[in-house]
């Protein structure tokens, strides 16, 4: 995403308790009901290790979902958000399959996809972020600050990699870039 005055939702999964408030807030904002199937943000649950990860569209810079949509229904808004134009979408799910996170959600009512629109121009900002005020797992920040924070995060991770391995630590040959 271009680093202008765009704001983005940053996720800190360590803080998520899996309460699903963000999902409720999202479906309330967009559909006036509280039902997780209508939420554009989703919690990936790994209960066995008590881990919950909010997953939502990251509005990728060179978004694969836009390139693969046969109907040109995936569009980028002024705000930087990448959303589905329902008038064009035929519900083929190419965008879901091409997304590294499987982020677009299929609207159970009409089979078309939807993804985070940053609550458009709502002066409150994104409702999911508001709903997570207590846990602070979601934050709405300037893209530039987010990039900086991410840079710091990466630096930390890289630094850790170069530290001598602790004796009893598990080594993970497998790492994903998120």
């Amino acid at each position: 995403m271009a680093l202008k005055e765009e704001k983005v939702i940053v996720i800190d999964p360590d803080k998520c308790t899996g309460c699903h408030s963000c999902e409720m807030a999202c479906s309330m904002k967009h559909f006036g009901k509280t039902h997780s199937h209508f939420s554009r943000i989703r919690i990936q649950e790994f209960r066995e290790v008590n881990t919950f990860i909010p997953v939502t569209c990251q509005a990728c810079e060179d978004a694969p979902c836009i390139k693969v949509c046969p109907m040109n229904a995936r569009i980028r808004l002024e705000s930087g958000a990448v959303v589905t134009n329902e008038d064009k979408c035929i519900g083929c799910r190419a965008c879901v399959y091409a997304c590294p996170f499987g982020a677009p959600v299929v609207n159970p009512d009409n089979g078309k996809t939807m993804s985070c629109d940053l609550c458009m121009e709502d002066e409150m900002g994104p409702w999911c972020v508001k709903a997570c005020t207590l846990q602070q797992a979601l934050k709405f920040v300037n893209a530039r600050d987010a990039a900086r924070a991410k840079g710091r995060d990466m630096a930390r991770i890289i630094a850790e990699d170069y530290m001598p391995p602790k004796q009893d630590s598990d080594e993970f040959a497998f790492s994903f870039s998120v």
Binding site: P13, D14, C16, Q44, F46, E48, V49, N50, T51, F52, I53, D170, F172, A173, F174, S175, F176, V178
Partner: peptide, 26 residues
């Protein structure tokens, strides 16, 4: 990514509570 290696490492990955490699878990 080498999935054979991944399979071998799975017990350790599965035990890892940290959310970062969530795609690995998935």
């Amino acid at each position: 990514d080498d999935l054979h290696e991944f399979r071998e490492n799975w017990p350790a990955i599965a035990a890892l509570g940290s959310p970062y490699p969530w795609q690995a878990r998935k």
